[in-house]
Amino acid sequence: MAVKTVREAISEALWEEMERDEKVFILGEEVGVWGGTYAVTKGFYDHFGEKRVRDTPIAEAAIVGAGIGAALTGLRPVAELMTINFAFVAMDHIVNEAPKLHYMFGGQMSVPLVIRTVSGGGRQLGATHSQTPDVIFAHFPGLKVVAPATPADSKGLLKSAIRSEDPILFIENVTLYQTRGEVPDGEHLVPIGKSKVQRQGSDVTVVTYSKMLNVSLNAAEELAKDGIQAEVVDLRTLRPLDMEPVIESFVKTNRVVIVEEGWRSYGVGAEVAARLYEEAFDYIDAPIKRVAQAEVPLPYNRNLEQLAIPQVSSVVEAVQDVL
């Protein structure tokens, strides 16, 4: 085990997969000469060359669309969208092409494409560049949506994604890149579609993913000072959603808080809560609580922006409410 940042973990996963399989290549804005907007692909262009590290025009539909086409021919493209906010201009290709082709043509075609992108707010970029619309993409059968939080999961899930035969939206979070954690040495693969308990506890279940995992873990430490033991479940994949560890934990605690960075309405919290009502109704001892972003376009002003995004205190308060 070595301690690495999320950025290093993702970079390593890409590097190792490109070394392993010549069919893996990267395309996207500023992935090559620039070295990646978030420096994830720094050094790749010099090592792998322009054939495999392809700078594209600022044309997201072409990036994802060409990724789909290349995947159809048997290559394993990793298409990068600079941020998830730009995914909307490639929406048709992400939700209406990639996830449909295998099914619609009776299983003849497959799209082994990974779309890497960055979600989340908190960097004072204003309303159009700060969104966390992950859940929108998780609505579509045929697409898999992966959103890890830890360095180990980031590496292991990205490697699995690149080897997958299905189209995958791989959502990173810009404020997580510097997060440190232990990453197993050598070949490290994490299965897609498996939620994981990241902290054991017996009093309350906190369900979360991506950046809100760190917020939830910090909240759990705060709560522990008052003798409250929160169990934190990290979804890691939004589609297919693995509810098993969530239900197992809920059966034990009978109380749940769902924490997400995106907006509350129609969100991850709504989905998880509905599934708990459907699948574990007998175990509910308190109203299910959601912690999510204020329902406003995110403002530029730092204080206002932080007010809109869930904080450690929001999670602590929500847990106190359900106890």
Binding site: G69, A70, L72
Partner: peptide, 16 residues
């Protein structure tokens, strides 16, 4: 929408 796909398929052939 299939035009970007066509570009990608051509890229696949060029690549290989």
């Amino acid at each position: 929408a299939h035009l970007p796909l066509a570009a990608g398929m051509a890229l696949g052939d060029q690549y290989m």
